[in-house]
């Protein structure tokens, strides 16, 4: 699987570095995924609404409290008293949050983001409860009857969602691409007019497919791994979503490749309820610290090391 993941990553790298230069599986030396570099949005589709400055979050308030000593009256104290942080995520996004079939544990880059918050609250990253939520429930999950504290689930911070939830500062920069069969000539979403292209229900990827100028037929599934099932059963011709997710899918299918330029920018943030801004500020403080002390880099290398050397983490932007 590792070898296959590497091949798939190589395909991604080639397509990233060489644009549409083809589908050779030989990686170029020195090519970098460079997710923090401004991606070329040469793909079709409506430009994202950035009037609300979706990358900008709430500024941390002073230094972090010591783990296990959350200030009274704050939401962090509520979590500490409960004894565990409830993280909403998925279990089928390889590399970000997926179930390890050998151990049954859910792990990945997103899960580690949650674990780092748990570590900051309790001093113990294991004090975390993972709740799997649907892609179309990610916004509601933080304010549901049984709410989650935090959603880290390859979730794009955009203006539409900022209306309902707070986002943390950006912890990862992704962009939407296309996964097709290794025998396909398609070089991007532009070549998929009239073809069935799958994405998770409720994801921004789905909206981007529907908005693509080449008019592909968007097909919704519960999650992206369900899209891979549909792809392997020949029910859809392609899958389109963030390159990060596609790499994880391609790693599971040697007959799949990731192609095309980035159609969109997908900055990932953690979603938090607007009822307690102090928790958003706390999460941002943890992110700030982890960007500075190398934790972010280590996490990147652990999960996404196959993409190449870790880039600089996305810089924090604040709205206040």
């Amino acid at each position: 699987m590792r070898a296959r993941a590497a091949t798939a990553v190589a395909v991604l790298l080639v397509s990233l570095a060489g644009g549409c230069s083809g589908d050779s599986s030989r990686p170029r030396a020195g090519a970098s995924a460079a997710p923090s570099a401004p991606p070329a949005t040469s793909g079709p589709g409506a430009p994202a609404d950035t009037s609300c400055k979706p990358r900008a979050s709430l500024r941390p308030a002073g230094p972090l409290p010591k783990p296990g000593a959350m200030p009274a009256g704050t939401y962090m104290r509520t979590i500490q008293d409960r004894g565990r942080l409830i993280l909403g995520t998925s279990q089928d996004t390889l590399l970000f949050s997926s179930r390890n079939p050998f151990t049954g544990a859910i792990e990945g880059f997103d899960v580690d983001m949650g674990r780092q918050i748990a570590a900051a609250i309790f001093g113990d990253p294991d004090k975390i409860q993972i709740r799997v939520i649907g892609y179309d429930d990610r916004v509601e999950a933080v304010d549901a009857a049984e709410p989650v504290d935090l959603v880290a689930d390859t979730m794009t911070a955009n203006c539409d969602r900022w209306g309902d939830v707070d986002f943390s500062t950006i912890y990862y920069d992704a962009g939407q691409k296309v996964l097709v069969s290794s025998t396909s000539d398609a070089r991007g979403i532009g070549d998929l007019g009239g073809r069935k292209v799958c994405a998770a229900q409720g994801s921004t990827s789905y909206d981007n497919i529907a908005a693509a100028a080449s008019r592909p037929v968007p097909v919704a599934r519960a999650g992206f791994a369900d899209c891979l099932v549909a792809f392997q059963q020949n029910e859809v011709d392609a899958i389109s979503t963030d390159d990060t997710i596609l790499v994880g899918l391609a790693a599971q299918d040697p007959y799949a490749k990731v192609v095309g330029p980035r159609m969109s920018q997908e900055p990932y943030g953690m979603a938090i309820s607007q009822k307690h801004h102090e928790f958003t500020r706390f999460v941002n403080a943890v992110l700030e610290r982890n960007r500075a002390n190398g934790t972010w880099k280590k996490t990147y290398e652990r999960w996404l090391g196959d993409l190449g050397p870790a880039p600089r983490p996305p810089a924090a932007q604040y709205r206040d």
């Binding site: 079939p101 519960a222 999650g223 891979l228």
Partner: peptide
């Protein structure tokens, strides 16, 4: 059967085959 084959190789897509 697909779910099992994928599970044996440690591929998480096995879980999706099972849920399908």
């Amino acid at each position: 059967a697909s779910a099992r084959a994928n599970n044996r190789q440690g591929l998480p897509v096995g879980a999706s085959y099972l849920s399908t």
